[in-house]
Structures are given as C-alpha cells and as structure tokens.
Design a protein around this nucleic acid. Sequence first.
DNA 1: CTGAAAGCGCTTACAG
DNA 2: CTGAAAGCGCTTACAG
Lengths: 359, 359
Amino acid sequence: MTSRRPIYRDDAGDAGRAGALRKRATINDIARLAGVSKKTISRVINDSPFVKVETRDKIRAIMKELGYRPDPQARGLAFRRSFLIGMIYDNPNPQYVVNVQQGILEAVRDSGFELVVHPCNRSDPGFLEKVRSFVEQLKLFGVVLTPSVSEDDDLVAILRELDCPYVRVASVSLDEAERMIVTHDSEGAAEAARHLAALGHSRVAFISGPPSFRSSYERRRGLAEGLAENGIALQDRYVVEGAYTFDSGVDCARKLLAMDEPPTAIFTGNDEMAAGVYTAARDAGVAIPDALSVVGFDDSPIAARLWPPLTSVKLPIKDMGRFAAEKLIDLARPEGERRSRNPLVRPGLAVRESTNTPG
Amino acid sequence: MTSRRPIYRDDAGDAGRAGALRKRATINDIARLAGVSKKTISRVINDSPFVKVETRDKIRAIMKELGYRPDPQARGLAFRRSFLIGMIYDNPNPQYVVNVQQGILEAVRDSGFELVVHPCNRSDPGFLEKVRSFVEQLKLFGVVLTPSVSEDDDLVAILRELDCPYVRVASVSLDEAERMIVTHDSEGAAEAARHLAALGHSRVAFISGPPSFRSSYERRRGLAEGLAENGIALQDRYVVEGAYTFDSGVDCARKLLAMDEPPTAIFTGNDEMAAGVYTAARDAGVAIPDALSVVGFDDSPIAARLWPPLTSVKLPIKDMGRFAAEKLIDLARPEGERRSRNPLVRPGLAVRESTNTPG
DNA sequence: CTGAAAGCGCTTACAG
DNA sequence: CTGAAAGCGCTTACAG
C-alpha cells in the first residue's frame, strides 16, 4: 500500500477524475443551476409543502444529477441540533449492548442519522454532569436509554431540561408511552415459573441481579407470581442477590446448594449467572438437569453453547433497539404525522435441556 | 415522571436558575468579556503559540468561569472536518466488536472526540460506496478499521482519496507503521502449537476461519510453524475450512472426528468454533481433554464458561482498540509533535483444562 | 409560492 | 502578537 500513496496525491491534482477530490456541490450550486434562491432549495431539502411541484421536481432532478446531499454539519449548526442519535448505557453485559446497537443501526440505516455510543458509569459521582455535557456538546438529536440508566429519573430530568428527545427501554413503564419500550420482564419470569411448576418443582430458587436494576425486582416478581398461580410460594431463603456476573452466579449457587434442603431448580436473573450455576453445580457434583434444573434469562449466545444447553427467557433485544430508535425518529415528526406505533415486546421461553422433573 | 414535566417547563422560564436553559456562552461572549477579538479566542482554543501569555491566561480563566466549550459543529463547519471518529467493521463476533469499541472509547474519553459506529457488509456490492458516503457526509476526523475491512485495499484507497486518516488493525502489517496496529496472530497460533507439541500431540487439526479473513491464513501459518519447530507436520487432511461460527465448528469437528485416524488435538480459528467442537465431541462420545485436546483463539468470555474451561490464545483486543484510536488522534498533531509510539501487541496463551496428553 | 438579509459559532487568509 | 473581513453550508424570521 505504501507505494501507492503518491498515486492518490496525483489523483487529487487531476480535476478530470470522476469526482475524486472535486468539491461536492453545495446549496448554492443547486440554487444557481435551478435559477432559484437557496431558500427554495432549503425548502425542498426540508420537504416544505410551499414549493410549486414543477420547481420541486426540477430541483430534485438537479440534486440527483450532482449527487447533492445537504451537509449535516451546516444544517445542524443552523438548526441548533445535530443528526446524531446517542445510545447511553451502563450495562455489564456486552452481548446486550451489541444487540441493542444493531437494532438502532437497523432503524437508522439510510435515515440520515448516525449512532454515537456513550457508555457511562452510574456510580461515578460525575455521571450526570458527564452525560449532560455529552448531550449538550453534540446537540444530540435524541438518545436511547437502556437499563439501568433508563431507570434514572435524574438523568431524564436533565434530558428534558436540555430539550433532548429520548426513548427509554425498561422492564416496566416509567414514562409516557411514546417515550417507552416496555419489555415486560415479569411475564418472561412467570413463564419460567410455569415451566418449572409443570415439571413438578416446588423448591425453586432465584438468583437476582443487583438491586440497582429494576429488572432484578421485576424478574423476581414474575417468578413469584408464576409460582403462586400453581400454589407454590417463592421462599425468602431461596432468594439470593447476585450481580449479573458469572462469578456472582457461582457464589450464589454455592450457597444454595450447600443448604440443608437445597432447591431443586434455580432461576437466574441472566444467562451469565446461570453459567455460574453450572460451574458451582459441577464442583458440587450436582448433575444438571437430573439433580438440578436451571433456567436463565436473555437467551444469549452462551445459552446454546453451555452443556446441557440452557433453557432461558428470551427477549427480542435487537428489536427493542430498533423500536426505540424508530420511536425517537418519530418524535421528530410534527405531532400530526407521527406513526405512533406501539410495537409489542413480549418475552418468550427458549426451552432446551437444562430442566427436568425434580431429582 | 409525567407529572414532573411541567416543573422543567417552569424551570426553563426561571432565568435565575443556574444555567438551566440559559444559552451557553459563545466565542463572541468570551471575546467581549476579555476585550479582545474573537480571532484571539480562536487562537487560544486551538493552542496557537501566537498569543501573549497573560492574554491567554486571562481568556482561559474567563472560559473556565463561564464553562465555555467551543461548539464542535461550528468548528467542524469551518474546519471542514468533524470531531467524530468512525469505527468501520464487518465482524461476525460481537464480543470482538464491543471490546474494540471499549478500547476506542477509553482513548476518546475527555479528548473532545466521539465514536460513531458503522457496521457494514463487505459482500454487499454497494459496500464501498456506502462507506464513502458515510465518511464523506460526516466528514469524519478519522476511522479505525478492524478485520476484515482493515484488509480491504480498495476501501483504504477511498479513505486516502477522501483525505480521511485511518488506522488499520490487522494480523500482519499492511501499511505504514503509523497506520497499523499489528496483532501478530501467527505468534499466538505458534504458541498453541508448542503447547500441544509439548503435551505430545502429533495429529493436530486446524479448523480455519473463512478465507476472506487474513487471520485465517495467519493462524494456520503460525500453527504450522510452531509444529514444525517440533518436527511435526500440519497435514492437509487435518485442515478444514470453517466460518468463525459455532455451527461451522460443529460441522468441521464432526468431519475430523469421523476420520479413520482422527486428530488427537484440534486448534480452532476462534472460540466460537471451539464451542462447536465441544458439542460435536460430546455427540460423538469423545471426552475432552482425555480423548481430544482443544485450543481456541480469542479468549472470549465463553472460553472460561465452557466445560472443561477452554485453553485459548488471548489477544488484548480492548488495548488494540485504544492503541488504534490513540494513533489516529496522534495523526492529527503536526508531524513534529507526534508521540509516534508503537505499542506492542502480542498474543498470549491462556491455558485452562481443555488440553491434555493424547489419549 | 418565493426571496433578500441576517445569523448559527466557529476558522481561514490577509494585513498590520 | 492581534484584528477586521469574509466564509464554511445551511436555516430562521420577515417580507412580499
């Protein structure tokens, strides 16, 4: 490659090359060619109805011919708003993060928007100010918030103050419908409970995520409700607090398995912790699923790669990201023209081989 | 939250509140307060040496007091370049993607740059034009390229043509040193080979990634060299082509295990395929590590969660991302002031429990 | 339906 | 070392 560099240098000098370094057309070029003012071009760019149809079509043709596309930076400066969508997250699970990103990117494709990612740390005392600065500096068009930052009302207050549109992804509704993607975690957990109850389990344990995540509470609630439907109580002694990490899963499972009357099934707040349960069970000589049933949450790639393959509650994470970004873009339309769809996000249960009748 | 909304509305009207919706200071405000022209402010912003020290300090103090920070959009428009760094990738492995992102974000923190992510599909015929459009529209400050897009010379040609700085992350050097982060994959593979040779394996197989990835070739080459050092040949019949996916790992391993004289050890191009080998081995009743040793590549989280825990070649992926972004930012400095570090990226071997002497 | 003027918040090119 | 003018490529507010 190195040797080729001069070639591009030369190309740069060659004004005859197709658009190589020839400057891109601007709104002024289009205006001149169309014989109208640049304000009219601006109207066409922004889909204003106040342009004669012939004028509009003529301008569009010229734009197309020159491959003209308005400069987002210049528009942004004049609009006082960029065309960037931010994803703000503080999530220990990378798989979750990429999936949401993929969803947002699908929604954003060919829309003229781009995605800026902004991880953060809620326990950092400067957290709120850093997010404020990020949003303010970039004059973000809007942001997508995922758990647990989506549950932070102080953060949301700042976004409102900055007049920055946002959509929150969370396990329960925390805001107006047009600003929420609700994931109904409790329903997924309830389904896991029904599955275990149907197999005959009554000593069911729960390893929760950290209390700073609303999902920890919702997943527990769903489990308790699903069990209750079948006349089974979720006993406090069978509920232990993990941290959504592999290691915490190992620790919690060790405690549960060391009990005098250990549970016959463990439901974990996510798959990472379920993987930890596998390790603890192996160390304790407890066979899955014959001596112990395990159900995870997320249905992440690891679920199918564990042995035995893990039964897990599945959330359409990528879709959630896409829906969130679509809502955000929708928020930009004049109120009358909003599509205002409220896509259904429902958890399901991916049943594999980690559950069986109680040993 | 909904009920609180009016509160912020009211706040907005309260000009007394600390900076709530008060407009942020601009270069003009600073100039007025400092009693100098905005050009001088601009000089301070851009660290020009042509400002009297007292003037500079006074201006800095005023900036600090008002919490002034120049508007990147306006600077970008004048500079004809944004302060956004792009990450362009086409990678089947989400874990790799997040790790590189994390590294870039570490480098970018507090630097005034932000990260825009741009996944793409190299097999899409419009691939090159889409990337061109992305870079051109956003007037990216620079881009980080990861495999396999980092190996695409046509893409690089476009970036040069657009005068967009870039840094390539790849398994071998493909460009000038200041534009490369070389990961030396072959060395990692050689180390895996030495480990297997030391255990006494001579029938060693390789499941490669797709040929469109340079790493597929480099990892094979390293394996062959490491074995050769120990007088062992990598036999063609033991080399099969996978696709860096779990399923391809299963398929390839099935073939290998069905041979008349199956290998006693399998080295895979990544951990995902190693997980596939585990599944195929279990189905075939082949015990790991006693009847079959397995070594993966990437040392991704899954490696430690498989059973038995997987021995794997470890690449400092996050560091690679950070180094790449640091180089990119460095490229912006005047040639004399570049720090021009060339950080060492070397693979290592994380030895776990998936390897043993040949059964 | 259309346009001339002013402005968004910065920098470049030139002059002193 | 410093500044007045012009410009980056768009939009807003106003006028017609």
